[in-house]
Design a protein around this nucleic acid. Structure first.
Lengths: 302, 302
DNA sequence: TAAAAATACTCCATAGGTATTTTAT
DNA sequence: ATAAAATACCTATGGAGTATTTTTA
């Protein structure tokens, strides 16, 4: 799937010899000459300087080589990813996911996965991070995707994707005219927070604590049990709320909600795969690779 | 230079119709069918689902589309950069550069530039940032490349490349066994610094000041007038020094010098092109584009 | 039954081969 | 004089066309 003329060019550029390249490619030397000549005609620039016995790259040649390498790199990735799709898999994968992941990150990935691997049966478990970890330990699931950063000895963690908790407000909110506020303005803003015990709240409080902001000093309007509830409430009030970037993607795109940055303050977090220690089963590994590849697709469109 | 079959695939994928794609590409519908079939044979996977009147991408198709877009992007860049090489230019360009840039960044770029544009005469001026700016104002040069971050009204600044001042030590230095130190360990380390008045020193002192480190508290072994002098001295002592990453590239690669990171502390800086305000001359613009493109080449190999 | 994709077949351009000439050390 | 690239010429594969058939909404 990679243009053969470029393959020829690349070989000549590395060996700096038409004859050697011909050998390596199992074609004859005149064929190599013709391919290179074709490229030179196309670009209207010489790619090699031929001085009798020696061949060197011209500047144009080096430029082309640089890009050829990128092109080859992409082609290799493509071949690899296609090869994953071609393997046909069967069986059942029991999968657990914590709230944000389950609601906002997994759905498109699951849909694609099912489309590609119709014979794989998925059993989903939806609970909070703590419970997912326990389900894994009790062998009720083979794979979990969680948003916490607890680290247990008897569980194997694999980073999956980055997330960030952002401060969000209704786009109409007069308090949110600025795109960025200072951290010391935060106490004056009425806030919605997730319920105590949720992973999201914990991460936020930790980050605030590190920045010497006391929770008691915050103007907390309400604690709400789900991201969806918070988003609805935001639309009808002048509150702001800390939510996962993933939970407000659509609303920010459509313009009804707005992310308000805070100077010198951010709340990054990671999503993780959790698995049993030791080698993974085929389906588990397949799903993990698939999710990693297909998560990037989305993040590119962000 | 971009594989035509992929071009056909891309068109079909965007229009979701073989016939429309054929129109757009000025070929016939059966030709399109054959190209797509060829791709499907190659990958051994269907790329489209044909249901009589409608065509949709399969998962494999979407995967291919994603990569096809990357490939097209690279091809476009390639064409553009080649087109720059094809323009033939003549004339004289007077160019000024400050110390680090002149010694470590420009040489490979200048060599390449001369190779591509034999009929352009280059006149180099080597001085410190301040002097280069003045030479520009006195119209003694058309273009400058500097490392300072002063901003004058009567000069036009264009970011060129990022640089970073790093803490460097001999690889044999027992003080440098760790790859990373804390900032509060710095005062105990014997330091070499560039001479007062140099841009490098100024940037370092500013950064330290921001981090609440007083210069008087540092253990300064010596002030030295050039990066080369500092590097030689480092090899025969247990001192460390703040130098531009560019100045120690080779030595770090060959393993005789070592970069020691400092936790939560970095000294980034920018290189800038400086030009007269208003539209640039052809040669000036040419050199700037050329330098930008050919600087990336190097940074990729870092 | 109508609109779109697939198939059948024909033609010519070109990728690739062999044999030979040119070129620079 | 020799090793390597370029040229000349031949063959066969496959890209593109026209005409036609198959498919499904």
């Amino acid at each position: 799937m990679f243009d053969f003329r470029l393959k020829v060019f690349d070989t000549v550029a590395r060996r700096l010899s038409f004859t050697k390249a011909a050998d390596e490619l199992f074609i004859t030397q005149p064929a190599v000459t013709k391919h290179i000549k074709q490229l030179e005609n196309y670009f209207k620039l010489p790619l090699f300087e031929r001085k009798g016995n020696t061949v060197t790259l011209t500047n144009a040649g080096e430029l082309l080589l640089k890009h050829t390498e990128s092109l080859q790199e992409i082609s290799r990735r493509l071949e690899f990813e296609i090869s994953l799709l071609k393997e046909s898999h069967k069986g059942c994968l029991r999968l657990g996911a914590s709230t944000t992941v389950f609601q906002y990150v997994l759905p498109p990935i699951l849909a694609r996965f099912k489309k590609s691997y119709k014979d794989v049966q998925l059993q989903m478990l939806h609970a909070n991070t703590e419970h997912i970890e326990q389900a894994l330990l009790r062998k009720e699931i083979e794979l979990g995707v969680i948003e916490g950063d607890s680290k247990r000895r008897d569980i194997h963690y694999t980073p999956f994707a980055r997330d960030e908790i952002v401060l969000v407000s209704s786009a109409k909110n007069p308090l949110a005219k600025k795109d960025e506020i200072r951290l010391d303005e935060l106490p004056s803003i009425p806030l919605l927070l997730r319920e105590p015990g949720s992973g999201t709240l914990e991460v936020v409080l930790n980050a605030l604590q590190k920045a010497d902001i006391k929770v008691s000093g915050l103007n907390v309007e309400m604690y709400l049990g789900s991201s969806e509830a918070i988003k609805s409430y935001l639309l009808h009030s002048t509150c702001m709320a800390f939510i996962s970037r993933h939970a407000v993607l659509k609303e920010v795109d459509s313009g009804c909600l707005k992310i308000v940055a805070i100077k010198r303050f951010s709340v990054p977090r990671q999503f993780f795969f959790i698995t049993h220690p030791g080698p993974e089963g085929g389906l588990t590994a397949l799903f993990m690779r698939f999710a990693l590849l297909n998560y990037n697709v989305q993040s590119l469109t962000l």
